[in-house]
Structure formats: structure tokens, C-alpha cells
Amino acid sequence: MMNLMRLFGGRTASAPVARERLQILLAHERGRNGASDLLETLRAEILGVVSKHIDLDPDKIVIRMERGKFVSMLEVDIEVPNSVQRSKLAAAS
């Protein structure tokens, strides 16, 4: 009876949505097992390289990995202080 009501009432089933959302999410999360360490390693090494030449606040390096269907994007966001702040930093140290 409920099924007939659903058919005629146009109520949509939510379980298929749940299933699809989970499949997509878990495919990404399983891939990330261990990959979070990769990002941390990348962050530390990039920080090391850039710090040789520019004074950096270690907290101002942000690394993100965005997974797409065919390619993924590695986004590295480094905030470099301008020269005024840089000379201040140099003077303080």
C-alpha cells in the first residue's frame, strides 16, 4: 500500500542517494589513508626549501589536495611577507 502511495504520490527514495554519497566519499577517504602523511611531508619539505631564501611563518603554508574524477590538483598556498615585514623580522632576530 505504501509502495503504491509512493508511486502515485511521487515520493522519492532517499536510500539510493545515501548509497551514492557514501560510495563517492569512501572512495576518497580510503585513498587518503596514508596520503595525509604525504601532504605533511610535502609541507615540511617545501617550507625547508623556501625558508632558505625567504623568512616565512611556518603556519602560512597551506597545502591542499583536491581529487577530481580524472586528475587531482595539488594546491600550495604560501603567504610571503612583504619587504617591510621582512626587514622587521630580520631586525628582531
Binding site: 532517499s14 536510500a15 545515501a18
Partner: peptide, 18 residues
């Protein structure tokens, strides 16, 4: 099972597959 049959709850097969 009633709710799963109506598509309102993940079915056993869904959970097992995932």
C-alpha cells in the same frame, strides 16, 4: 526492512557492497 523496502533506508545489499 519495511523502510529499506520503501527505499528510505540503506538496504543490506547496499551496506555489504559499500
Amino acid at each position: 526492512s519495511a523502510r529499506a523496502a520503501r527505499g528510505e533506508m540503506l538496504s543490506i545489499d547496499d551496506v555489504l557492497e559499500i
